[in-house]
């Protein structure tokens, strides 16, 4: 064994991040014939947030780290493009976009911004899609959210979205969210179903989920560029392939995990609402101000937005061609 890769994810072993890391470890250790060992540290054992962990990646105390777009936005603000609502329609589009040149472009931007220290390896998924969930009533149209106190992270984009839909964005630290939902400090949140169920939010009264899918929960996998470039070329290929395997695993894992989560939610009396295409369009229309906010307020926002849009269009066209070939 010649190299050790120390990988960190702030989530726990129930999370899809862990599934991805297991696949990564297994591939890299086997394909490198044991020359590379992968150590996995789950949770906040070594570092506990994006700023702290990415600094670890930059200075080499951590080799691999997964952040959400929110976790990296303080350093690379343009990654918030992944949070823009209703831009990528579904999993197939998202997976095509993230497997393509879009990710390579973002890698270049991040390397340039970090002085060639932090390398974006791949973008996968963590937790499926964000949906609106609340303790009050079924939400079918944006007006149903009017005045509702919705928990958001302290970041501009999700707050702009909540405000655009007429609700009141309320920052609550994640550990205090259960109690806050229970006591009514906030009335709703925007999360994926697996997070909602693993935090037992329905027990705190969170009984209404609208599957609007307003944001893809992207997982950005970072690696210390120095560590990566120090590897011989054949080992670099092993690592890159490992990240491909990891990406595939994290695309698949949330889909599997969400099945029992949805079942459990409904079995517990939860109201699961799937909006019609027209209703979804109404949400998308109401969310328009967020795009303007993003392109005019975020450094590099216009460029990355255009790139994302072009990638989505391209993916949509490809997909249509593939579909028509498949069904005929």
């Amino acid at each position: 064994q010649d190299f050790t890769i120390r990988a960190v994810a702030n989530s726990n072993e129930e999370d899809e991040d862990y599934d991805g890391l297991q696949v990564f470890k297994s591939h890299v250790e086997a394909a490198s014939n044991g020359r590379i060992a992968v150590e996995i540290y789950m949770g906040t054992q070594l570092c506990s947030n994006g700023a702290e962990c990415l600094q670890g990646v930059a200075d080499g105390s951590i080799d691999v780290y997964i952040s959400t777009s929110g976790g990296a936005a303080g350093l690379f603000p343009y990654v918030q493009v992944l949070d823009l609502p209703y831009l990528m329609q579904d999993d197939r589009i998202a997976e095509k976009v993230l497997a393509g040149d879009f990710t390579r472009e973002m890698r270049k931007m991040a390397l340039a911004d970090s002085g060639d220290t932090i390398r974006l390896m791949t973008i996968g998924n963590t937790g499926g899609w964000r949906n609106f969930a609340n303790t009050k009533q079924r939400v079918q149209k944006p007006e149903d959210l009017a005045g509702m106190k919705l928990r958001t992270v302290v970041a501009d984009l999700p707050q702009e979205l909540v405000r655009a839909l007429g609700a009141s964005p309320t920052p609550i630290p994640w550990p205090e969210l259960f109690t806050s939902l229970q006591t009514g400090v906030v009335e709703g949140t925007k999360n994926g179903i697996t997070d909602i169920m693993s935090m037992k939010f329905p027990e705190a009264g969170l009984q209404y989920v609208t599957l609007d899918g307003h944001a893809y929960m992207a997982a950005l996998w970072w690696m210390s560029n120095q560590k990566f470039m120090e590897l011989p070329e054949d080992m670099r290929q092993v690592v890159v392939d490992g990240f491909y395997q990891l990406q595939q695993a994290t695309f698949a894992s949330p889909k599997r995990k969400s099945i029992p989560a949805y079942e459990e939610f409904v079995a517990g009396g939860g109201d699961l609402y799937v909006p019609t295409p027209e209703e979804k369009q109404a949400f998308a229309d109401a969310a328009q101000p967020v795009y303007e906010w993003f392109t005019s307020n975020v450094d590099g926002g216009q460029d990355i937005f255009d790139l994302m849009k072009a990638s989505v269009d391209e993916a949509t066209a490809e997909l249509q061609a593939e579909r028509s070939a498949d069904i005929n």
């Binding site: 070594l46 570092c47 506990s48 947030n49 702290e52 600094q55 670890g56 200075d59 080499g60 105390s61 630290p173 550990p175 205090e176």
Partner: peptide, 19 residues
């Protein structure tokens, strides 16, 4: 030695908390 940085980082981040 690289992990000494982790000690410092957790010292700071351990205090940086709203609760």
């Amino acid at each position: 030695e690289r992990d000494l940085t982790l000690l410092y980082r957790n010292l700071y981040n351990g205090m940086d908390s709203f609760p």
